[in-house]
């Protein structure tokens, strides 16, 4: 028997319709795209409610997609417009505010869903294993940035002394942190979905 979750389907469907209307009226915007994707994910989760773990997998999936869209839009703008520091900073603040809103909403939803309000040994083991993946990616990224900087200095590359090199470097390091967090979330999603500590 297929289990449906009507609350999720209604919430997801409404989010899709509202954001689609705004998208058609005002045109493309990251916020509307975010709403459309969140709405579609919630609707799909409500439709196949017995296929997805609503307490662990759904919040992680929403978090992952949200981060990809928000930071994807930010980095797309920043790396294409390196000379526009003001625009980049405004977008950074926008992404930060959106991220806080999404995370607060998600954690409230998780707390409401999980009545006992605690994590157990499986959650903690999955968090530890996923953190190792995230940390590995972060370490590799930071070493690559350090290597690039040192090589740039040795071979006296022009960009290293250009006025936007600090801004570029800050954003590349920021990208490394974001990618490592994305890997962390993806690994947790993978372990919840495919099983963990299975002999």
């Amino acid at each position: 028997m297929v289990v449906r979750n009507d609350k999720l389907r209604w919430a997801g469907g409404s989010l899709v319709v509202v954001n689609l209307a705004m998208f058609l009226v005002w045109g493309w915007a990251t916020l509307f795209l975010l709403g459309l994707v969140f709405g579609s994910v919630l609707f799909a989760a409500g439709w196949w409610a017995d296929e997805i773990d609503l307490t662990n997998e759904l919040p992680l999936l929403v978090s992952l997609l949200g981060m990809v869209i928000m930071f994807g839009s930010y980095f797309f703008y920043v790396f294409a417009n390196l000379e526009d520091l003001t625009g980049g900073f405004q977008r950074f603040l926008g992404v930060l505010i959106l991220l806080v809103i999404v995370q607060v909403t998600l954690h409230s939803l998780i707390a409401a869903q999980r009545a006992d309000g605690h994590t157990d040994e499986r959650d903690r083991a999955i968090q530890r294993a996923a953190s190792r993946w995230g940390y590995g990616v972060m370490a590799v990224g930071i070493w690559l940035v350090i290597g690039q900087l040192v090589l740039g200095m040795i071979f006296e590359q022009a960009w290293i002394n250009s006025y936007f090199s600090i801004y570029l470097l800050a954003n590349v390091l920021f990208l490394v942190f974001v990618v490592s967090e994305l890997v962390n979330i993806s690994a947790r999603l993978f372990y919840y979905r495919r099983g963990f500590n299975v002999a």
Binding site: R122, D123, G195, F196, N197, V198
Partner: peptide, 12 residues
């Protein structure tokens, strides 16, 4: 969720 995972042999 952990009991569900144990029953499905997704977690030891």
């Amino acid at each position: 969720q952990t009991i569900i995972a144990i029953e499905k042999n997704k977690y030891s």
